[in-house]
Design a protein around this nucleic acid. Structure first.
Lengths: 243, 243
DNA sequence: TATGTCATCTGGTATAGACAACTATACTTA
DNA sequence: TAAGTATAGTTGTCTATACCAGATGACATA
């Protein structure tokens, strides 16, 4: 349903509505969507607003248009842009899983030299360190540690972003995240990782490290995150273009 | 200049105009673009049309918006190095290392059902299977197996592409590679992998699988490759954009 | 000096309507 | 039967307008 009084943009509400129809299989791959005019009439909104919603879905690869015919649900193979910068929560939802967290620690600490350099801050500056177990459908999948400069996020408490850190940065703090540098390597689970992820020591794990930057002129570093994923529960997937 | 009578959409003309201003450095990285209203007035077109042009440029990563401030030319750093689709040889050269190979086997085999489906061929079709050890500066880094349909590459002998498989496809066969889907996961080295890579059994390894497609309308699958990388010698690195 | 307010920029959202270009179907005509 | 035509439906493009919300600088006020 669309709520015109809401502060959430109408096009965004419609976008989520259609997304949900697709995820719950009420609209299946190849299905014809209602036409833009039908949506406009049904919700008493402008066709241009409908187009904005559908444009975003096209951009995400969930649907595609054919002039003169209509808009169709995309085949899953081409469903998502797998190469985008996403948070764990977004990633899991894209995979059709339900993300959750278990907080291990939440502190403000002094950055060591390397972290300070990574985040372009002074070694005396405080950083917020958040260590969490990330679960998908209630199964532990990854152990994640986020470091983010206190000078940027300010005082914060864990309740505020217990869901998605990127949601918190973008929707609450109105930061625009631009891009991230990421490395992926293979390793073996340490004692601590094994315990939290409920696997045996020396089981294979993927270690992902990422530094993300804001979309401003300074390209301010906004987070450094290191995540250890259970190899049996997680694969990185990406679509790559040839230049 | 914008030609309203042209059959080329106005938003597209404006898009190209701005692009050209950026490429000829009349608009440099970080520069403020004229506001949407200015463009609208200057060319006597609607602001919504201007927005459509700028939206596309934002999508391409050439410019970014900041509410209340304006639209800016993106830094070049955004533009390039989106972790494109590369072969092992290209990858190693990018890292400043010297790639080489050691051939293990080279056969034409019948595709099993899954491989046939991946490559969109019939299970009775032959595929060329190439198994090689990939070295960087003469150190074994990965064990790679390439499967490519014989119907596409035809007869071929190993000498012809002993360097880079992508070079062979693009320069000799004049194929245009469009994109690839890739997964990365962690595992432990098998006996065979351990032997070839000169590591101990059960050492951590990265397993990369990729299917690449041609840049044609049919998006013909051109290769399926699976590579096992030594975790101590190899990290995946990538730059990712936030949508 | 410091603070707050206001005017005026900016992009973000939304409307209502128009015509063009394309597709599919039903119908007419040679 | 086969080919052309009318028509109704779709997305694509474009206009002119309106108001909202964030940013900024000028200016008045405490």
């Amino acid at each position: 349903m669309i709520n015109k009084q809401s502060h959430i943009p109408i096009y965004y509400q419609l976008e989520e509505e259609i997304k949900s129809m697709i995820h719950t299989k009420q609209l299946k791959a190849g299905d014809l969507l209602p036409s833009e005019r039908e949506y406009a009439e049904k919700y008493a909104i402008s066709r241009m607003t409908v187009r904005q919603a559908i444009n975003n879905l096209v951009k995400e690869g969930l649907v595609y248009r054919e002039k003169g015919k209509g808009t169709f649900v995309a085949d899953k193979k081409f469903e998502q842009d797998l190469s985008g910068l996403t948070s764990f929560s977004e990633d899991m939802r894209n995979r059709g899983l339900s993300p959750s967290n278990k907080l291990i620690s939440f502190d403000f600490i002094k950055a060591d030299e390397q972290l300070a350099s990574t985040l372009s801050i002074s070694p005396t500056d405080l950083v917020c360190k958040i260590k969490r177990i990330r679960l998908a459908d209630n199964e532990p999948v990854a152990l994640e540690t986020i470091y983010t400069p206190k000078t940027i996020v300010g005082e914060m408490n864990y309740q505020e972003f217990s869901h998605s850190f990127y949601d918190y940065l973008e929707k609450k703090l109105h930061f625009k995240i631009g891009f991230g540098y990421q490395t992926i390597e293979a390793s073996l689970a340490s004692d601590e990782e094994a315990t939290h992820l409920k696997i045996k020591k020396d089981s294979p794990v993927l270690v992902m490290e990422r530094t993300s930057f804001l979309q401003n002129e300074e390209q301010t570093p906004i987070e450094f995150v290191t995540s250890t994923y259970r190899a049996d529960k997680y694969k990185f997937k990406m679509k790559m273009k040839r230049d």
